[in-house]
């Protein structure tokens, strides 16, 4: 019984893992936003990593799309920046800053 159960469980596990990265392909791309004078480029790669680039700095992070359709940017320090995906645009909410609207670049 257990022997028959094991592959079923492993299959379920694999499916649940797949579910996590369901929309990654569609979301991946380069986005840009402006905060005052600062121009920010958000590059979401298909492998789940991404970069946050400004004039001063470039920050590495990982990103994922949650089941509810939200975009999570996972910082190296352990923080999560939440965003919403709306068609080709992404809205990111940073603490103490108005929401940033990123538009997809060609």
């Amino acid at each position: 019984m257990t022997n028959r159960l094991l592959p079923v469980l492993l299959l379920l596990l694999a499916l649940s893992l797949c579910a996590c990265s369901r929309d990654k392909d569609t979301v991946a791309g380069t986005y840009a936003a402006k905060n005052g004078d600062t121009e920010i480029t958000l590059n979401l790669k298909e492998n789940g990593t991404g970069t946050w680039s400004t004039d001063l700095d470039e920050i590495q992070f990982k990103w994922s799309v949650r089941k509810d359709g939200r975009l999570w940017l996972h910082t190296r320090e352990g923080g999560v920046i939440q965003g919403r995906i709306m068609d080709d645009n992404i809205t990111l909410a940073l603490p103490g800053v108005p929401d940033l609207l990123f538009t997809q670049q060609q």
Binding site: W52, T54, D57, T75, G79, I81, P95, G96, V97, L100
Partner: peptide, 19 residues
């Protein structure tokens, strides 16, 4: 006080204190 959480320092810094 300005909130600059340590776990998203880079992002917040570039937005808030870069200048």
């Amino acid at each position: 006080a300005v909130n600059l959480p340590s776990d998203m320092f880079g992002f917040a810094y570039s937005m808030k204190l870069a200048d």
